[in-house]
Structure formats: C-alpha cells, structure tokens
Design a protein around this nucleic acid. Sequence first.
DNA 1: GTATAGTTTCACTAATTACTGAAACTTCAG
DNA 2: CTGAAGTTTCAGTAATTAGTGAAACTATAC
Lengths: 171, 171
Amino acid sequence: MHCGEMGSRWGFNRTVGQMYGLMIINEEPLTAVDIAETLNISRGNVSMGIKELQSWRLISVTHKPKDRKEYYAPAGSIWDMAIRVFEERRKREVDPTLSLLRDNLLDEPSTEQETYAHKQLLEIHDLLETVTEWAGELQTMNPENLTTLMKLGSGVSKVLDIKDKLLANNS
Amino acid sequence: MHCGEMGSRWGFNRTVGQMYGLMIINEEPLTAVDIAETLNISRGNVSMGIKELQSWRLISVTHKPKDRKEYYAPAGSIWDMAIRVFEERRKREVDPTLSLLRDNLLDEPSTEQETYAHKQLLEIHDLLETVTEWAGELQTMNPENLTTLMKLGSGVSKVLDIKDKLLANNS
DNA sequence: GTATAGTTTCACTAATTACTGAAACTTCAG
DNA sequence: CTGAAGTTTCAGTAATTAGTGAAACTATAC
C-alpha cells in the first residue's frame, strides 16, 4: 500500500497522496475510518486530507442507505483527475505569478536598470500567458482529438506545413 | 525587489527564487556577495542556492579578467529558462512516479481487488507516458512551429480534420 | 611557500509545515 | 428532546525544511 506515497510528489503532502492513492486502488468507496486505519493516521488528519482533496475537486462523497457514514471515492476518470490536478496547479502556481508580474509591469521604469528589468518581466509574462492560454484551449478540446494530436507527436510540424500549403493555394 | 518571491511557487524555495529573480532583473552578472547583500541572506545560503540553480541548469558562471570572483547570470533566454524548469520538474516529479508505477505493474494481480488496482495503475501509467512523450516532442520542435501551433489554439482540431480528409483522398 | 580573496561545507538554530487527539459540533432515529 | 454515530476544529507537538555563520577549503599573485 505504500505505493500511494508517490502522490507526495504531486502538489499535496504525503498523507493526502496516500489517501487518494488508496481511493484509486479500491473499487469500493471508503469511509474516513477505513482510511485512517489502513494508513495508520489519525481521524482528524483524514478529515483535513478530505478537505484538501475536495479543494482539488478530486473526490466525490456518497452515502449508503440506512447508513450515516460518508463514503469517499475518486471523482471521475483518471483523465479527469489529470485535468484537475493540472488545472488546480495552474491556479495555484501560474495565476498568482501572472498577477504579480502584471502588478509590477504597471510601474513605469525610470532608470535604465529598471527598463531592462521591465523588459525581462514582460517577456516572462507574455510567455506564461501564451502557454497557459494554450493549455486552456487544449483542455476544451475533446479527448479524441487530443489523443490524435499526441499520437501525432512531432509529426505536428508536418501537419502545419500541409496547412500552410493549403492556405497558399487558396489565396 | 521582493517581487523575486514569486519564484517560491516554482519548485525551489523562497531564497533561491529571489536569487534567480535578481539575476533575471539585472543585466550585469552578479557576484555571490552582491546577492547576499541585496537579499540580506548569509553568504553560505547563497552558495547553496547557486548549487541548486546549477542543478536546474539555470545559471552560467563567468569571470572577469584580473578578478578572481565568480559572476553569475541566468543561462540562456527566458524561453530556455521555461524549457529547463519544465524539463527538470518532469525529471523530478513525473519520472520517479512512472518508474514507481512500472515496478508495481510487474507484480501479477492475484485477487480481484488487485486486478482492479492493477488496471487503475496501468491507466495512470499510460496517460502519464503519453503526455510526457508528447511534451518531449514539443520541446524538440523549433520555437517558430511551436508558436504557430499555439496561435492556432483550439483551431488545431480543424487542421486535424483537414489532415484526415487529405489522407482519405490519397487512399 | 604564504598571504589573500574568494568559495564550500556543515553542525546548529529558526521557521514552517504536518499530525495528533480530545473537545466541539452536526445529524438523525426514536 | 436525547443520545448515538458520525464529522470537524484547533491548540499543542512532532517532523521536516530552510538559513546561519564560523571553520575548512581552494586558487592565485607575489
């Protein structure tokens, strides 16, 4: 069961990773007590972990009839999970960076030193913006197209060439 | 100068982020002492930070004639920087996850429970592998093509349709 | 060689982050 | 309304991670 530890590399802490790993591996939804006992962690810690996973929109809660317990399970498919982790990390890492950069770009540079700094910040800002916009668009594409695109790999360049030729012919 | 703090979100700790921010903002290369004084951190801490940044392949060291000091500056363009952070994070986060998954997939499942777990792990593994392979291929593409691709955004699906039609015609 | 100007290391301390468990809270059946 | 079965909160503690600074180390000029 220790394999859940790999989650520790993915933006949440060790126990939260283990908790989620456990849910993924188990076909049946689990109760908070199941989790606490399997992982040998305190009940309170599980509660906090659940909250964290919910903030990542990674789990769904169900109830069994005649039972007051809450049952937790991963929300959606593995693919959904990846999208969400990706999205949330963008929100937590990239977006704050972007707004910090924007704030700084508002100040007009007065010295030469500042002009250079300004230029550099602008470059970072634009790069980050392009990349995240693009990533956002990829996410809205349907999964099949995305898979095609990925299978294509570096063949993408060839397709782009084809496109250019088509446009040239049409004009 | 506190704006360098945003680096704290990007995989290294606060001071290392500040150090790198400082180098990006300054046109001229800096010495270890410059950095320590500007950021009010100890000389030893700077040395460790330099080491860390070097392990990310993010800085280059130069020497001035008649001067024994080492001068540090960001290695390469902003674009290079992004590629490197991306690549290094893949190495540190994704690759270990993949090899952990592979290890686990070697064990043949014996119970039904394990069969399910096995299936889930396989799915995660395949997804991660596809995505990282693709990301790797994107990196080898020349920047212009990449920009075209990004500008295209979700229009990519249209190009793929065109490609499919072309292939259909050729057959 | 040796004095000097620099860098690196590392044991120690500080700061941050994660975990525990008991108490407070919620919900619902009877 | 009561209490049983559950969840959440949070103050305190443990564990981890980051930072310091003095001592050890290196390289070079003379």
